[in-house]
Amino acid sequence: MGHILIQNITKEYVNRRRRPRNGEDNTRDEVLTVLDNVNLEFQDGEMVCILGPSGCGKSTLLRMIAGFDTPSSGQILIDGRQVTAPSADIIFVFQHNGLLPWMTVWENVELGLRNMQDEEEKSAQIQEFINMVELAGFENHYPSQLSGGMQRRAELARALAVNPEMLIMDEPFNGLDFLTHMKMREEVVNMHEFIAKTTLMVTHDIDDALVMGDRIVVMGDRPTQVKLVRKLEMGRPRNLDRDPELAALRDELFFMLGVSYAV
């Protein structure tokens, strides 16, 4: 499982106008076209990194792939079957805290494993993933007692523990300090290398995309269309400074996202 085909996706949000603006008497609903005729194809097992300016509809696209939202028109096929509802095969890491605040770190990580029969093995597995994100000692803390970065890590542990068929992450490294960011990036790359499941990730960090991606997608301004899709063939680990192809792509991406030079 893991081939994704996105065909002619359009997404519109209808914003109800509460009050007519001064001088205008039209109280018609305002239609906001977020995605306009988007076509994409991702191969099974790819790590796809999606870049784009804030508000361009990246989260919206991911939500529709995960089945939380439906497109206004067009269709999304996963292995040839249309997405209709969320499923446990596709685990979603939310941009804004998706941890359940009334559960401890342990209980949150347990969510994806709650149907495991063998209690001992289950505990071992939960502990393993909590250790991986370096939250050992915080098992019994509630999310509100953790820092923003720790919450992100707990949510990553929860997602990775499921070993899902497909992983969708909306800015998973947001709010992590530099070193943890590097560590988690490596962890995700290793995990992906190891299990080779399709992974979609939105990021604002161009280097993330260059280091991690098998495929990089850049989305443009509203109404959003795909500005660039690039398949990266080079192996990992990647060195951005040594590889002239990556360096050139990096400059191109910076330029495309509105910065004319790579700082």
Partner: peptide, 21 residues
């Protein structure tokens, strides 16, 4: 609504949605 999406994502049944969310 994020919590209900989490519930859907982890395939909670109706009882679990009530008791855990």
């Amino acid at each position: 609504p994020v919590y209900f999406q989490v519930a859907a994502n982890f395939c909670f049944n109706r009882t679990e949605v009530v008791t855990k969310i």
